[in-house]
Amino acid sequence: MTFKHRIAVVLSTICLPWFVQAKDWQVQMLNYGDAGSMVFEPSYIHAQIGDTVTFVPTQSGHNAKSYVVPRDTKAWTSPINESYTLALQHEGVHLYYCPPHLMMGMIGVIQVGKANNLDTIESKYPRLRSKIALSPERADQIVANIQQ
């Protein structure tokens, strides 16, 4: 390989569009998982702008609904019992839950880059937590994963 070819390979690798390196995270919606009953697995994701998250209804009766989203992001709700892919386009934290199973603590967090909306999470999370009858401590542990 000539010097020019080596330079071309290095430059093309460095200049690859960000979407080529994006990751698709898979979140299973489960009746029972490693953390107990009615869970998202994984329940916490630290992703990057350009990644996607696909919610997979591994077991029936689940969907995901945003409670807090990053600035400049629209609220979202997945259809019940259907896969749903969320494109992560803005930095911040998504706090979401399964509407049929919120009282059982079925919540999750997607952090995209920095948690620049942590103030909103801190102000709104107590109201969401008050609706959890079973395993509120598990929900606290999920939210505690958020990194500043």
Rank of each mutant, 00 (worst) to 15 (best):
G92I: 02
S43D: 14
D140A: 08
D119K: 05
M38I: 11
V68W: 01
I7R: 13
N81I: 07
A22T: 09
T13W: 12
Y125H: 05
P57K: 08
S130Y: 01
S60L: 14
W25N: 02
Y125I: 11
Q26H: 10
N81F: 08
V93C: 03
H46Q: 05
P42N: 04
P100L: 12
T13L: 10
E122M: 05
Q89E: 08
K124S: 04
L88A: 00
Q28F: 15
E41M: 06
V68P: 01
I49L: 03
A35D: 12
Y125V: 05
S123H: 00
F40C: 08
D51H: 06
R129W: 00
N117Q: 11
P57D: 02
L11I: 13
P17W: 14
S43F: 03
Q148M: 14
S123T: 12
F40H: 04
I45K: 00
G33W: 09
P42W: 11
K74W: 09
V93H: 08
R129S: 04
A22H: 14
R138P: 00
E122A: 09
W18R: 13
Q48N: 09
E41W: 15
D51F: 04
A144Y: 05
E82P: 08
Q111R: 13
A115I: 02
Q111T: 07
A139H: 05
Y44Q: 02
Q26F: 10
T120L: 12
S135G: 05
S43C: 02
T52M: 15
S83W: 09
